[in-house]
Structure formats: C-alpha cells, structure tokens
C-alpha cells in the first residue's frame, strides 16, 4: 500500500468513527444511527474528529425524527357511494383554500387541490361539508 492509499484509508476510518459517534449521540436512533453503528465496527483509527461527528450528527437527528414514517390510511373506501346517512361518501375533488387550524382568514392560505380523500387522510375523526351559495 502506498502512503497516499494509507492516508485515504485513514481518512475513511476517521469519517466512519465520526459517523458512529454522532449516531450514538442521537438517542432517537433510527436509520442514521444504525449506519453509524455499522461503520464503528470497522473503525480502528483512533481519531474521529469532533467536527465531523457534529456535522453529520445533526443530519442524522433530522432523518431520525421522521423515521416513524407517514401513516398509511389505506385505499379510499370502496363503493357503492351515496349521500344518505350510513352511505359512504364518494371521493370528491375540489380546489381552494384549505384551513385546518382556523388561525387565519382562509384567503391568506395557498390555493390548492383538495378532496374528500384528503379529509380522510387528515387524521381527524369527523368533518363537516356544507354546500353554500355566496351571498
């Protein structure tokens, strides 16, 4: 092995140890922490740098925060559809101003596509739909 190759291997190991350290710093664990653990097994160098660990640790924490993943609401309920009490509402497509927290006037919010399926995926228990006429 040449000196240049050895230097490259050493830098790689230092990075690996740094990643391992940042993984163990992050108590939320998850994918990035797991990668750090794997890297640590190969780490024989004495010197993961603090700077490297800190930088990658931050990124690992951010990724781990989302490791629970989105909730799977499954497919929209199958028909037949109807509008009587007890019927299943069809998946209806709308567009406009979606206000989920009532904190601001709806005209200050972005104009987006929305649907009854989006209502379903909100995670809320119940919703009200009113057909209105301006006036």
């Amino acid at each position: 092995m040449t000196a240049r190759t050895l230097r490259g291997v050493s830098l790689t190991l230092m990075l690996a140890v740094g990643l391992a350290a940042c993984g163990s710093d992050d108590s939320s664990g998850g994918a990035a922490g797991g990668s750090g653990g794997i890297a640590q097994t190969g780490g024989t160098s004495a010197g993961g740098t603090a700077a490297g660990g800190a930088a990658t640790g931050g990124a690992g924490g951010a990724i781990d925060a989302g490791s629970d993943g989105p909730v799977d609401f499954g497919p929209y309920p199958a028909g037949p559809y109807g509008n009587a009490v007890g019927d299943t509402l069809a998946n209806l497509a709308w567009e406009g101003y979606v206000n989920l927290d009532a904190a601001a006037s709806s005209d200050t919010l972005p104009y987006i596509d929305y649907s009854s399926n989006d209502m379903r995926k909100s995670g809320k228990s119940y919703g009200l739909i009113h057909i209105a006429l301006q006036g």
């Binding site: 509402l89 919703g127 009200l128």
Partner: peptide, 17 residues
C-alpha cells in the same frame, strides 16, 4: 353526490360514512 346548495353533511372520516 351532494345534491345542491344548503345541504350539510357530517362525515365519519375513518369510514367516510
């Protein structure tokens, strides 16, 4: 599906009923 104006529907969002 929702007939016309002035109708209001309350929906169970877990089942969409």
């Amino acid at each position: 599906q929702l007939v016309s104006r002035e109708w209001t529907y309350v929906i169970d969002l877990k089942t969409m009923k």
